[in-house]
Nucleic acid binder design. Structure first.
Length: 856
RNA sequence: GGGCACGUAGAUCAGCGGAAGAUCGCUGCUUUCGCAAAGCAGAGGCCGGGGGUUCAAAUCCCCCCGUGUCCA
C-alpha cells in the first residue's frame, strides 16, 4: 500500500511524526517520543495499576460516552444486530460491526440504515476460545463500538481525515488519554475482496481501535477503486474499559460484581471462562441459536459443555442456569431483550444439559466396553482410541482416562492429533449455487417501480418497456412478484407472451419470457398475473407468518425462523427448536393459527423508518434475516406477529381460509420443519386424505371408523400366518427327519456315530433346517443333497466332533466341482447338479464313515 | 456443510463372512401363608431400509433413513 495513503493533513498539521517500529517493522504516527508502536508485544502493558484515562469507566458508561460523542457529531445511533448473522451465508456470527452492512450496503446494492452511523455491536469470535481466562483479555463475546460512513461519488460523507480527527478527539478529549501516548500504526487491511489502508490505535501496550478505509477492489493483481468507499472502525469496548480501570485483567474491569461472586468459588481462569461463556450464551440463546450439532447451534452447545466441564472442577458448584441468569440480568441493563423470556431460555438450557448428561452416561458405557474388548485382545486402549472417543462420543481425553480401569497417559499434542485427523476432510467448500447473473442491464435503465408491495390485488396492469434483451423484459413498473423471501415467482403474461420467471436484479425486476422478447423500449404493454397461483402463494405466505407467531407462542420465543419456502402445492417453515414437536404441540399450533384466521385480523403492510420499527417491535422483526435499508417493509398481523418482509400478503387473516399442518420433521438437530397448506390447497389436501381413508377402509371392508381395528386384525392375521408357516416348515422337516431316520437305506451307524444321507427336494434353507433337526442329538451327521435353480447343493451338518462338517465337505466337493465351506458343525457347497452331485454325496458318506470309524 | 461412531429380542448390548447370542425384563413350573429370591422350562428377531459382492452377508462395498459426536 502506497505510503501516500497515510500522509494525512491531520497528521502533518497536528505535529505528528512518522516512525518505524523496530520491533514489528510497521510505520506509525505519533506526537510522542516513542520509538516503538504502543501495542503489545512491541510495548508491554503500561496501564495496569495506572489507568490511562482521566477517570474510570464502567462498560455502560464507556458505551454511552462513545455513542453520545458520535451522535453529537452527526452520526445516527443504530440498534445492535443479532449476534448470529442470518443475513449472510458465508459466516455464522457477527464478528465485527461492519458485518451488519455486508454485503448489501457495502456493495452499494441497498442504502445504509443511516449515514454516517454509530453502533455498539456485540460480536462473537470463537477462534481464541482457549485464550479466554488465560490471557486476561480475550472474550468470546465482545462489543465493537464503531462509527461508519458510506461514501458514494454523488454523496460523500467523510473519509480518512475526518475519521482520524474524530477518533483522536474522542480518545483524547472525551476519555482524556494523553495525545503523545497514542500511536497510529499503518496496516494494510484486506477482506472479502476489498482492501484499503488502515490505522490501528495503540495506547500503553493495548490496541484499542482500528480505523479501516475500504477503498479498493482486488481484481487479480490489479486494484480497482470501489464505487462506494467505506469507513469501517472498531473500538474495543472491553479494552477501553480495562484501560480506564487498570485492573489486573480485563474480566475484573468488564464484569464487575458477578465476576467477584464467581471468584469466591472458582480460581481466576475458571471464573473467567464461566462468566465469559455465560455472557456469550445469553446473547446466543436470546438471538435464537438453539444448541445443536451443526452450524451455529454447535457453538451454543460447545460453550454450554465447556461451562459444564468447568463447573465440575469444583465440588458444590452453582448451577449453570443460575450463573446464566445472574449474568443475563446484568446484560439486560444495557440490552433489555436479554432480560425477556428468561424462563424460555432456561428451558432450552435445561434440555441441553439433560442431553449432555445422557451423552456422558452412554459414553462411559462405551468406553468401559471398548477397554474390555482391547484387554480381551491382549492389548490396551491407545491414543487413537482417545481420539476416536473424542470425535465420535464427545468425551474429552481427561474424562476418558478417568473412566479406564488401567489409565493411559494423554499425549501433549492430543488436540493436534485430532486436528490432523480432520485435516483430510478440509476439501474445498462446494461452490454455492448462485443464480446466473444474466446479461448486464445498462445503468441508464430506470429502476423498476414495484407495486405489489402495497397493492397485492392488482393482477392486470399496463406499463412501459424500459429494457428488452433476449428473453428478458424490464418494465417501468410491475405487479409481478420476483422470487425472494422464500416465496416463488409469479407467472402470467406480458403482451400475450408467457412470463415463466421473475427475478430481482439490483434495482430492476426482470421478467423472463418463454421465448425471445418481441418488445421494443418505450412500448406500452399489458401485464397479467396468474390469479390462482398468486392467491395461493399469498395465502401460504400469510399462513407462514401466522405459524411463526403461533410457534413462538406455543413453544417459546427461542423459536426463530430458520428458513421458509412457499410454493403452490404446499409451504414449509423451518424453525429453531431443541426437540421434535409433540403431536399435542402441533395440534395446539394448528388450532391457534385457525383461530386467528377466524378472528379475521387485519394484516397491514407498510413502510416504516428502520429505527422506529425496531424501537416498536424489537429485532424479532428479522425472522427472515436482517434487512438493510433506511426503510423496512413491515407486515403486521394485528396484535400477533410483526415481521420485516417483502412478500405478497392477504390483507385479512380470514383470506387464508384454512391452515392444515401436513407433517413435521427434525431436519437436523435443533431445526424442525413444518409442512402445511392453506386456502383452497388445504381443502384439496384434506379431501385427498379423506378419500385415502375411505379407500383404505373399503379395501379392508370395514367402516372408516374401524380402520385401525381392521389394520390391527390384518396385522395379527399376517403375523399368525407367518408363525404357522414357520411352524409348519419346522414340523415338515421334523417329519422328514423322522422318516429319514426310520429308513434303513439312508442311515448308517459307525463308531457310535449315526450318519444320515439323503437326496431330496429343498432349497438351501430347507436343507439347513432339516440338518438341524437331524443333528439335534449329539453323535449325528447329516449329509443332504438337493438341486435348486439348476445348481447342486450339498449340506453337511454334524454333532459328532470326530466328523467335522467342513472336513467332510472339503473332500466331497471336488466330485461336483462345488465351491463352499463352513465350520465343524455345518458346511455347505454349491456345484454341478445331477450325476456329479450324486458322486459328491457318496464321497461325503465315505469320508464321514472313514472319520467316524477312525481312531477316537 | 463435511468427518467419525452407532442402529441386532421389550431394555442394555455382544457377535463383525460360515446353523442369530448374553444379561435384565416377560410367561409357565418348582419352592413359599404371601412377597422377595433361587432353580428349571419357554415365548420373544425382516440384525434400520434398499441395492451390490460371495457358494454363503447381521458381518464386506455403495446409496438412503435415523441417532450421537467432532470440526467449519
Amino acid at each position: 500500500m502506497d505510503e501516500a495513503e497515510y500522509a494525512l493533513d491531520f497528521f502533518r498539521n497536528g505535529g505528528f511524526s512518522r516512525r518505524t517500529c523496530p520491533a514489528c517493522g510497521h510505520a506509525f504516527w505519533t506526537t510522542g517520543s516513542h520509538e516503538r508502536c504502543q501495542e503489545a508485544p512491541c510495548t508491554p502493558y503500561g496501564f495496569l495499576g495506572h489507568p490511562a484515562t482521566s477517570r474510570p469507566y464502567r462498560p455502560a458508561e464507556m458505551r454511552e460516552a462513545f455513542l453520545a460523542f458520535f451522535e453529537a457529531r452527526g452520526h445516527t445511533r443504530i440498534r445492535r444486530y443479532p449476534v448470529v448473522a442470518r443475513w449472510r451465508n458465508d459466516v455464522f456470527f457477527t464478528q465485527a460491526s461492519i458485518y451488519d452492512f455486508q454485503p448489501w450496503v457495502t456493495e452499494g446494492i441497498l442504502p445504509p440504515p443511516a449515514n454516517p452511523l454509530t453502533i455498539s455491536q456485540p460480536c462473537l469470535r470463537f477462534l481464541d476460545l482457549d485464550e479466554v481466562g488465560r490471557s486476561g483479555r480475550h472474550f468470546t463475546e465482545f462489543e465493537m463500538m464503531a462509527h461508519h460512513a458510506f461514501n458514494r461519488p454523488d454523496h460523500p460523507v467523510y473519509f480518512k481525515e475526518r475519521c482520524v480527527e474524530l477518533a483522536h478527539e474522542f480518545l483524547t478529549g472525551t476519555l482524556g488519554l494523553a495525545a503523545p501516548g497514542l500511536t497510529y500504526k499503518e496496516e494494510e487491511w484486506e477482506g472479502g475482496g476489498n482492501l484499503g489502508p488502515s490505522l490501528s490505535v495503540g495506547v500503553a501496550g493495548l490496541e484499542v481501535a482500528t480505523l479501516v478505509f475500504m477503498e479498493y477492489l482486488r481484481d487479480g493483481e490489479r486494484l480497482r477503486p470501489m464505487p462506494l468507499t467505506v469507513v469501517d472502525t472498531g473500538y474495543g469496548l472491553e479494552r477501553l474499559t480495562w484501560l480506564s480501570q487498570g485492573t489486573h485483567t480485563a474480566y475484573e474491569a468488564v464484569f464487575g460484581a458477578p465476576y467477584e461472586e464467581l471468584r469466591r468459588t472458582f480460581p481466576p481462569r475458571e471464573a473467567s471462562i464461566l462468566i465469559d461463556h455465560a455472557r456469550a450464551l445469553n446473547f446466543l440463546l436470546v438471538d435464537g441459536v438453539v444448541p445443536s450439532n451443526s452450524k451455529e447451534g454447535y457453538f451454543s452447545r460447545l460453550l454450554i459443555r465447556r461451562a459444564l466441564r468447568t463447573l465440575s472442577t469444583v465440588p458444590d458448584a452453582p448451577e449453570l442456569g443460575a450463573i446464566l441468569d445472574r449474568v443475563g440480568r446484568e446484560v439486560a441493563r444495557d440490552f433489555p431483550e436479554v432480560g425477556e423470556h428468561r424462563d424460555d431460555l432456561r428451558a432450552v438450557l435445561d434440555a441441553e444439559i439433560e442431553r449432555y448428561r445422557e451423552t456422558i452416561v452412554r459414553s462411559r458405557e462405551q468406553i468401559r466396553r471398548a477397554e474390555a474388548r482391547r484387554t480381551a485382545e491382549g492389548g490396551r486402549p491407545g491414543v487413537e482410541d482417545l481420539v476416536t472417543w473424542y470425535d465420535s462420543l464427545g468425551v474429552t481425553p481427561e474424562v476418558a482416562v478417568a473412566e479406564l480401569a488401567a489409565p493411559i497417559p494423554i499425549p501433549e499434542d492430543f488436540y493436534a492429533q485430532v486436528a490432523r485427523r480432520h485435516e483430510a476432510e478440509a476439501g474445498a467448500p462446494e461452490a454455492k449455487e448462485t443464480a446466473a447473473p444474466g446479461p448486464e442491464i445498462p445503468a441508464s435503465v430506470p429502476p423498476t417501480e414495484v407495486r405489489y408491495y402495497l397493492d397485492p390485488y392488482t393482477l392486470d396492469f399496463e406499463a412501459h418497456v424500459v429494457h428488452s434483451t433476449g428473453n428478458e423484459v424490464v418494465l417501468d413498473r410491475t405487479y409481478f412478484y420476483p422470487t425472494g423471501g422464500g416465496q416463488i415467482t409469479d407467472t402470467g403474461e406480458i403482451g400475450g407472451t408467457r412470463v415463466v420467471d421473475v427475478v430481482r436484479r439490483g434495482p430492476w425486476v426482470v421478467h423472463a419470457l418463454e421465448g425471445p422478447s418481441p418488445f421494443r423500449v418505450a412500448e406500452r404493454v399489458r401485464g397479467r398475473i396468474d390469479a390462482g397461483r398468486r392467491t395461493q402463494l399469498m395465502q401460504h405466505h400469510t399462513a407462514t407468518h401466522l405459524l411463526n407467531g403461533a410457534l413462538r407462542s406455543v413453544l417459546g420465543p427461542h423459536v426463530w425462523q430458520a428458513g421458509a419456502h412457499k410454493a403452490v402445492d404446499a409451504a414449509r417453515i423451518d424453525i429453531t427448536h431443541f426437540r421434535a414437536l409433540r403431536p399435542e404441540e402441533v395440534r395446539r399450533v394448528e388450532r391457534l393459527v385457525n383461530r386467528l384466521v377466524r378472528e379475521d385480523r387485519p394484516v397491514k403492510s407498510y413502510f416504516e423508518k428502520r429505527n422506529e420499527a425496531e424501537r416498536r417491535f424489537g429485532f424479532t422483526l428479522y425472522q427472515g434475516g436482517a434487512v438493510p435499508g433506511k426503510e423496512l417493509r413491515i407486515v403486521e398481523i394485528e396484535g400477533f406477529d410483526v415481521e420485516a418482509c417483502g412478500g405478497t400478503h392477504c390483507t385479512h387473516t380470514s383470506e387464508v381460509g384454512l391452515v392444515t399442518i401436513l407433517g413435521t420433521e427434525r431436519i437436523q438437530d435443533g431445526v424442525v420443519r413444518l409442512t402445511y397448506a392453506a386456502g383452497e390447497r388445504a381443502l384439496d389436501v384434506l379431501e385427498e386424505r379423506a378419500h385415502l381413508l375411505e379407500a383404505a377402509a373399503r379395501s379392508l371392508a370395514v367402516p372408516p371408523g374401524q380402520l385401525l381395528e381392521g389394520i390391527d386384525r390384518l396385522k395379527a392375521e399376517v403375523e399368525g400366518a407367518r408363525q404357522r408357516e414357520r411352524a409348519g416348515e419346522k414340523r415338515g422337516s421334523a417329519d422328514r427327519a423322522g422318516s429319514l431316520l426310520a429308513d434303513p437305506s439312508s442311515v448308517t451307524d459307525a463308531g457310535g456315530v449315526r450318519i444320515v444321507h439323503a437326496r431330496l427336494d429343498a432349497d438351501r434353507a430347507g436343507l439347513m433346517e432339516l440338518s438341524r433337526q437331524l443333528t439335534r442329538e449329539p453323535g449325528r451327521v447329516a449329509l443332504l443333497a438337493a438341486e435348486s435353480e439348476g445348481r447342486g447343493l450339498l449340506f453337511v451338518g454334524s454333532s459328532a466332533p470326530r466328523v467335522p462338517a467342513d472336513g467332510v465337505l472339503a473332500v466331497a466337493r471336488e466330485a461336483f466341482r462345488g465351491r463352499g465351506g463352513g465350520n465343524p458343525s455345518a458346511a455347505t457347497a454349491v456345484g454341478e447338479p445331477g450325476e456329479p452331485l450324486a458322486r459328491a454325496l457318496a464321497d461325503a458318506r465315505a469320508e464321514a464313515l472313514r472319520r467316524a470309524a477312525g481312531p477316537a
